[in-house]
Design a protein around this nucleic acid. Structure first.
Length: 983
RNA sequence: GCCUUGGUGGCGGAAUUGGUAGACGCGCUGGAUUCAAAAUCCUGUGUCCUCGGACGUGUGGGUUCGAUUCCCACCCAAGGUACCA
């Protein structure tokens, strides 16, 4: 009986589906374990071999946990809102829902072939109204919440209204907009409804605000920073302007400190935690207010170095700073305006990229030093960012490199307040200095001076200690069609949410998926998109009457909305009453193991933590972190293949050269004409181009440099393992290659160049897992992907090693079956076979716990090699071995398990128990080294004493031979490990 | 620049608390089987060499009886971040 992987795999796929083998129950006596993959966006290109890497790893872990007696939740779904489907819709008019459905079906087929143990009954799709109903619900909960700094958590907005009614906003310690006016309870109660709503909007956890965006009028859309190149849109090259737009924002900054603190209690990779820490960017310092000379107002700055306040010799404001206009003097007006205009033209990205150029303009205005009362000139400069801190800095040139450079450039004085040399550079250290020339701070060090400076500032009411975060509130509006609609309508321009019982608000139909001509988002094209507040339904726009029927929000939510809470929906995926039942939430709690790419470090993984903490605050969840343990799987890269075309205008048909040939010419630094092949090629070209005399200059084109060639992607499927191109297939691939010339090696082969790149359709380097399954089977694919290397590491895909893994599975099969069927017997196993088995149990168990799946595959290979050599056919060994391998190669394991006479699936068979007694050795092959170099080994009993080991070794003839008559200075004996003779 | 991770044969990669560097697989060498091929099996395979040995885990130091592993300095690569006051 041969190993027919195709039949076996199809059979078990069907079995698992029919028997719902992997359906998880929400009640169980078993302990729970929740294993989750980052769900994919179903793109039109389908899965490539890189996608399943993490899914295979998590599947191995999930299956292992089932063997270990856990009730495992291992679901899968789709992050199905997104841009590609919308762009396809713009081009073709096909509804994104249809594109998405098609892509999902394709993904599902591909996923099914790999034999994952997903519980598909819990599938979620973020674009499904039954799902986004709850995304909308969470949005309304955020809208109806505020952040109380005293209790350090989100609370229902009603508690805020109560406090406003009773005590005004003075005593309220909330996270809110910066420009909130103070009011008393009397004032609050006197405000009309509209005024009250406006104020509340400044406190809500999701709020409307004017946000600066990159607006592209030609495309009618907002662009992300990386969609802009040199100030114009990447697509189409249209101009982009910075524009303020009213957008929804999420007050994630309220959670900055808790998002930092929470990192200590979760088991995530350090680099990922670090990137979240940096992203949140906490800095501790002080806020200082400088009186502006001749005006009533002050400029507020944030500084991490209040100790250096006496070194401040000027101030710099961001060009966009709101006070610039007010303080600029008449003489400086022209220069300032010119500078502002010049910086506005540059995109934020450009501005950030160009760090070297120092630029700025004096405003003519002065501020007053809070202590010395000296006048301080106020400048503007684009090295100060409007979006960080207060958009203004107190410049201390002696202690900050940028201020130093700025002062040098504009000849501003650089007073030194350190007992250090600053003639060449600013002194930026925080240790080993004393402050001088600083009045009451003289003689102090860093820490004491900061403390004293803040105290003094507080005393005069011009500053206080402050913590500043780099993290910004998250913009939550997108001018797109294919996203969650907001459950929001507008009464007199003020937003109102739609009550949960009327959700979901479904995406309306539109004729085109483009923005409207007057710059409205695509939903502006919908005809039925108004809210009837009486009947509580969406109605035609024509009915809008400003009394009971109101316009609905035209923006949609960003991609991260649906992915921020999906982990909880899996717990009770088909619930129409709640986002998930309380018992289900209590039972599954949060994700025990999450596997996915590190590219989501500061997006999805941060937002998801934010929403979880919010839902926790409001009592919907009992956990405040979504993912307890997280593993980043490395990307599988493609090995692109290149052919090289000679750059020459004189030749009618292009010429492609085998890579090795060019290598040779370039390495020799000889002109191509000196090679014998030249005659052969020249003849061919002459025939073809005989009407073109210019051909004979061809030799001058071909010098000894790679620059004379253009690398062109070949599809990797035309290339074999030795990097040889199938010329026939290649020529018929695209018309441009048909008449081309291919200069081969002398043996007639044509070699391509290879380079590791990201897998992508446009680079023709995508390898489809279906092809591997056809050729070798899913079990081979699974094991090979794990065998490639450590899970976390990025690695190029190459097929070179797959035969090794495939023949391993064939060997494994042969342990159980020969041509006549099952060969497993009930006879007892040899000592050696039991030793092999238990060695394997121990290693595989350790490996799975450590996510070191590549080394388990080696361990299985060693085990099978040993058992084959031992001619082991004992059930006592082979039955547990099948369970050991089943997480990795589940199909073959199920097949052998059923051949062994089991009627139940192997998937919940108990994991074999490791028994150390099988590994006990009585002797050890001691390595005997001389001065640390191993020379020979010597077998000795393990219970031999240190002294006896030394005696035995010293008495050995080889020892004497290596010593050549010398007496050793010292003999190191580590029983059970090593003997080292020094001397 | 800063933060993080990594650097081991021709290749992917192993190596537990410092204790036989190169497991396992690919590739390659030679062989068996075959008319031949595929498949399968066996053998060898870090480099150099005077066949005794010498050298070998990015480079240079250090600690140690002993370092891929620990410490210091540096080089290189990948990823993140970037005028953050």
């Amino acid at each position: 009986m041969k190993y027919h992987f195709n039949e076996i795999e199809a059979k078990w796929r069907k079995y698992w589906e029919e028997n719902q083998t992997f359906k998880a129950e929400n009640q169980s006596d078993k302990p729970k374990y929740y294993v989750l993959d980052m769900f994919p966006y179903p793109s039109g290109a389908g899965l490539h071999v890189g996608h399943p890497l993490g899914y295979i790893a998590s599947d191995i872990y999930a299956r292992y946990k089932r063997h270990k007696g856990f009730n495992v939740l291992h679901p899968m779904g789709y992050d199905s809102f997104g841009l590609p489907a919308e762009q396809y819709a713009i081009q073709t008019g096909q509804h994104p829902a249809i594109t998405t459905e098609t892509n999902i079906n394709r993904y599902r087929e591909q996923l099914d072939r790999i034999g994952f143990s997903f519980d598909w009954s819990r599938e979620v799709r973020t674009s499904n109204p039954d799902y986004y109903k709850w995304t909308q619900w969470i949005f309304t909960e955020l809208f109806h919440s505020w952040y109380n700094k005293d209790t350090d958590k989100a609370e229902p907005i009603e508690s805020l209204i109560t406090r406003f009614t009773n005590e005004g906003n003075g005593p309220v310690n909330a996270v809110c907009d910066e420009n909130v006016m103070l009011f008393t309870s009397e004032m609050w109660n006197a405000y009309d409804e509209e005024q009250q709503q406006k104020i509340l909007l400044q406190y809500r956890l999701t709020y409307l605000a004017e946000t600066e965006v990159n607006w592209c009028p030609a495309l009618g859309t907002v662009l992300a920073n990386d969609e802009i190149v040199n100030g114009v849109s990447e697509r189409g090259g249209h101009p982009v302007v910075r524009k303020k737009m009213k957008q929804w924002s999420m007050r994630i900054t309220a959670y900055a400190q808790r998002l930092l603190d929470g990192l200590n209690q979760i088991d995530w990779p350090q680099p990922l935690k670090d990137s979240q820490t940096n992203w949140i960017g906490k800095s501790v310092g002080a806020s200082v207010k400088f009186q502006v000379s001749g005006f009533k107002f002050q400029v507020e700055v944030f500084t991490t170095r209040p100790d250096t306040i006496f070194g401040a010799s000027f101030m710099t404001l961001a060009p966009e700073h709101e006070l610039v206009e007010k303080i600029t003097t008449a003489e400086q007006k022209e220069a300032v305006e010119a500078y502002i205009e010049q910086t506005a033209k540059r995109s934020e990205r450009e501005r950030m990229a160009d760090v070297k150029t120092i630029s700025g303009v004096f405003t003519g205005g002065y501020a007053e030093h809070p202590f010395s009362k000296e006048p301080i000139p106020i400048w503007i400069g684009d090295y100060v960012l409007a979006s960080y801190g207060t958009g203004a800095v107190m410049a201390v040139p002696c202690g900050d490199e940028r201020d130093y450079a700025f002062a040098k450039h504009f000849n501003i004085p650089i007073p030194n307040i350190f007992d250090q040399d600053i003639s060449e550079n600013a002194f930026t250290e925080k240790e080993e200095f004393k402050i001088v020339n600083s009045d009451f701070l003289n003689g102090l060090g860093y820490k004491e001076a900061i403390k004293k400076a803040i105290e003094a500032l507080e005393k005069i009411g011009q500053g206080s200690g402050k913590i500043n975060y780099r993290l910004r509130d998250a913009v939550f509006s997108r001018q797109r069609y294919w996203g969650e609609p907001f459950p929001v309508y507008y009464v007199n321009g003020l937003p109102k949410t739609i009550d949960p019982e009327h959700l979901p608000i479904q995406l309306p139909e539109v004729e085109k998926y483009l923005p409207t001509e007057d710059g409205q988002p695509p939903l502006g094209r919908a005809d039925v998109w108004a809210w009837d507040a009486e009947k509580c339904t969406v109605v035609s726009n024509e009915l809008a009457d400003n009394e009971t029927i109101f316009p609905l929000e035209l923006n949609t939510m960003p991609g991260w909305a649906g992915s921020s809470w999906y982990l909880f929906r899996y717990m009770d995926a088909n619930n129409n009453e709640e986002f998930a039942r309380q018992e289900a939430l209590d039972y599954w709690q949060n994700v025990d193991l999450y596997i996915g790419g590190s590219e989501h470090a500061t997006g999805h993984l941060l937002y998801s933590r934010f929403w979880t903490k919010f839902l926790y605050d409001r009592g919907f969840l009992k956990v405040n972190e979504p993912f307890k343990k997280l593993i980043n799987q490395g990307m599988i890269l493609g090995e692109s293949a290149f052919v090289y075309r000679l750059n020459s205008k004189q030749i009618k048909n292009p010429i492609y050269f085998s890579k090795n040939f060019i290598d040779k010419v370039v390495a020799d630094k000889k002109s191509f004409t000196e090679y014998d092949e030249y005659e052969r090629i020249r003849e061919t070209l002459f025939q073809e181009n005989r009407n073109q005399k210019g051909i004979f200059n061809f030799s001058t084109d071909f010098e000894t440099s790679w620059q004379n060639f253009t690398a062109i992607h070949s599809h990797v499927s035309f290339v074999n393992i030795s990097n040889e191109l199938d010329l026939g297939a290649f020529k018929s691939w695209k018309p441009e290659f048909k008449g081309a010339h291919f200069i081969t090696e002398n043996n007639g082969t044509f070699k391509v160049g290879r380079e590791v790149e990201k897998m992508s359709k446009s680079k023709y380097n995508v390898v489809n897992p279906d092809d591997i399954c056809d050729q070798y089977g899913a079990d081979t694919l699974r094991m090979y992907e794990m065998f490639l290397g450590p899970l976390e590491q990025a690695k190029p895909w190459n097929m070179a090693g797959i035969t090794g893994v495939h023949s391993f599975l064939k060997k494994f099969w042969k342990l159980y079956c020969d041509d006549n069927g099952l060969v497993v017997t009930d006879s007892s196993a040899s000592k050696d076979s039991l030793k092999t088995l238990h060695k394997t149990i121990k290693k595989v168990e350790e490996d799975i716990e450590n996510f070191s799946f590549n080394t388990s595959v080696s361990t299985f290979m060693i085990a099978v090699n040993e058992l084959t050599a031992q001619k082991c056919s004992s059930r006592e060994v082979l039955e547990p071995l099948a369970i050991l391998i089943s997480p990795y190669a589940p199909h073959i394991a199920e097949e052998l398990w059923s051949k062994l006479g089991h009627s139940e699936s192997i998937s919940t068979a108990p994991f074999p128990q490791f028994d150390a007694s099988h590994l006990v050795e009585s002797t050890k092959e001691y390595p005997i080294s001389f001065n640390g170099k191993m020379r020979f080994t010597l077998e000795m009993p393990l219970d031999l004493s240190k002294e006896d080991i030394e005696k035995t070794v010293m008495a050995h003839e080889k020892t004497q031979q290596y010593l050549e008559g010398r007496t050793p200075k010292k003999v190191i004996v580590v029983p059970g490990k090593i003997v080292n003779i020094v001397g």
